[in-house]
Computed example of a mutant assay.
Amino acid sequence: MTIVPSPQLQVRLGTRGSALAREQTRRVMAALAALRPDLELIETIVSTAGDRDKRTPLTVIGGQGVFARELQTALLAGTVDVAVHSAKDLPTEPVPGLVIGAFFSREDARDVLVSRDGRSLADLPPGARVGTSSRRRLVALRRLRPDLEAVDLRGNLDTRLRKVREGEVDAAILAAAGLLRMGWQEHITEFLSLDDFVPAPGQGALAIECRADDPAVNEMLAALNDPAAALAARTERSFLRALGGGCRSPIGAHATVSGDTVTLRVMLGDEAMTRVRLSTWTLPAAEAETRAGALAVEVQRSLAGADPLPV
Rank of each mutant, 00 (worst) to 15 (best):
R12E: 04
N225I: 04
D123R: 12
G127E: 06
P215H: 00
L32W: 06
I61L: 11
L141P: 01
R69S: 15
G252M: 02
L75Q: 01
P5K: 09
V11D: 04
V84D: 10
D214E: 06
G155N: 08
N218F: 04
T280V: 11
L39M: 02
S249P: 02
L41I: 03
R160V: 07
L161T: 07
T15Q: 10
P227N: 05
T25A: 14
E70C: 08
R36C: 13
L303V: 01
D152V: 09
G252F: 00
M182D: 07
V130F: 06
R143P: 03
V84Q: 08
R136S: 11
G293A: 08
T59N: 14
Q8V: 08
A77L: 04
L278T: 13
L144E: 14
P37A: 07
V257Q: 05
G202M: 06
L194T: 07
C210T: 14
G131W: 01
E190N: 04
G246N: 15
R277D: 10
E209N: 02
V139C: 04
K88A: 15
V114A: 06
K54Q: 15
L141W: 02
L194F: 11
N156T: 10
A230E: 13
A229E: 03
N225L: 05
N156D: 13
L224I: 03
R162Q: 11
T256M: 11
R143A: 15
D213W: 01
R129P: 01
A232H: 03
A68H: 02
V151S: 04
R136C: 08
G62K: 06
R143N: 12
Q203T: 09
T92Q: 05
E289M: 02
T92H: 02
P310N: 12
T282E: 14
T73R: 12
G244A: 11
R162H: 10
R145A: 05
P94I: 00
L153R: 06
Q10C: 13
P125K: 11
G252W: 00
A294I: 07
T189W: 07
R143L: 14
E149C: 14
E107G: 10
A200H: 04
V262C: 07
A122G: 08
L121T: 04
T92L: 00
T92P: 00
A140R: 05
A306V: 03
R234N: 10
S258N: 10
S115K: 10
R234K: 10
A49G: 09
E166C: 09
A128E: 06
I45D: 12
L180S: 12
R145K: 03
Q300F: 12
S47E: 11
